[in-house]
Amino acid sequence: MMFESIATWACRGVSAAIVAMSIATLAACAGGGGSADQAGPQAAASSVALPADANLDYRLGSGDKLRVIVYGEQDLSGEFDVTGTGRVSLPLIGQVQAAGKTLDEFSQEVATELQKGYLTSPKVSVEVLNYRPFYIIGEVDKPGQYPYTNGMTVLNAVAVASGFTYRANQDRVFITRDGAKETEYPASQSVHVLPGDIVRIPERFF
Results as ranks from 00 to 15, higher is better:
residue 40 G to P: 00
residue 121 S to F: 11
residue 119 L to Q: 05
residue 183 T to H: 09
residue 36 A to Q: 11
residue 170 Q to G: 11
residue 49 A to L: 12
residue 99 A to E: 13
residue 90 L to T: 05
residue 176 T to W: 02
residue 1 M to N: 13
residue 137 I to D: 10
residue 80 F to N: 03
residue 161 A to E: 00
residue 182 E to C: 05
residue 199 V to L: 15
residue 89 S to N: 13
residue 90 L to N: 01
residue 181 K to R: 14
residue 86 G to S: 03
residue 100 G to W: 07
residue 13 G to W: 07
residue 92 L to I: 12
residue 1 M to E: 10
residue 89 S to C: 00
residue 40 G to W: 10
residue 25 T to P: 00
residue 10 A to C: 05
residue 153 T to R: 15
residue 24 A to Y: 11
residue 120 T to G: 04
residue 64 D to G: 10
residue 191 V to G: 08
residue 146 Y to M: 10
residue 120 T to R: 15
residue 188 S to I: 03
residue 39 A to E: 09
residue 167 R to Q: 13
residue 161 A to C: 03
residue 177 R to N: 09
residue 18 I to Y: 14
residue 94 G to I: 04
residue 70 V to C: 10
residue 192 H to Q: 14
residue 179 G to P: 01
residue 197 D to E: 05
residue 187 A to H: 03
residue 44 A to I: 05
residue 199 V to N: 06
residue 123 K to Y: 15
residue 184 E to R: 13
residue 111 A to G: 15
residue 42 Q to S: 08
residue 37 D to V: 03
residue 30 A to V: 11
residue 124 V to Q: 09
residue 197 D to P: 10
residue 61 G to K: 02
residue 128 V to Y: 06
residue 190 S to G: 04
residue 33 G to L: 09
residue 177 R to T: 05
residue 173 V to P: 10
residue 163 G to T: 10
residue 102 T to R: 00
residue 40 G to H: 12
residue 111 A to L: 05
residue 126 V to K: 07
residue 39 A to C: 05
residue 142 K to V: 09
residue 158 V to D: 07
residue 173 V to C: 02
residue 171 D to L: 02
residue 163 G to H: 12
residue 151 G to F: 08
residue 76 L to T: 06
residue 44 A to S: 12
residue 130 N to M: 13
residue 198 I to N: 12
residue 87 R to Q: 14
residue 53 D to C: 04
residue 205 F to K: 08
residue 133 P to S: 05
residue 23 I to F: 15
residue 179 G to K: 08
residue 69 I to L: 14
residue 74 Q to T: 14
residue 157 A to K: 02
residue 148 Y to T: 06
residue 196 G to K: 01
residue 5 S to G: 00
residue 18 I to K: 11
residue 194 L to Y: 14
residue 1 M to D: 13
residue 185 Y to L: 01
residue 96 V to Q: 14
residue 164 F to A: 05
residue 108 Q to Y: 08
residue 22 S to R: 14
residue 135 Y to H: 15
residue 154 V to M: 07
residue 13 G to N: 12
residue 129 L to G: 09
residue 7 A to E: 10
residue 1 M to Y: 13
residue 73 E to F: 04
residue 32 G to I: 04
residue 17 A to H: 08
residue 99 A to L: 01
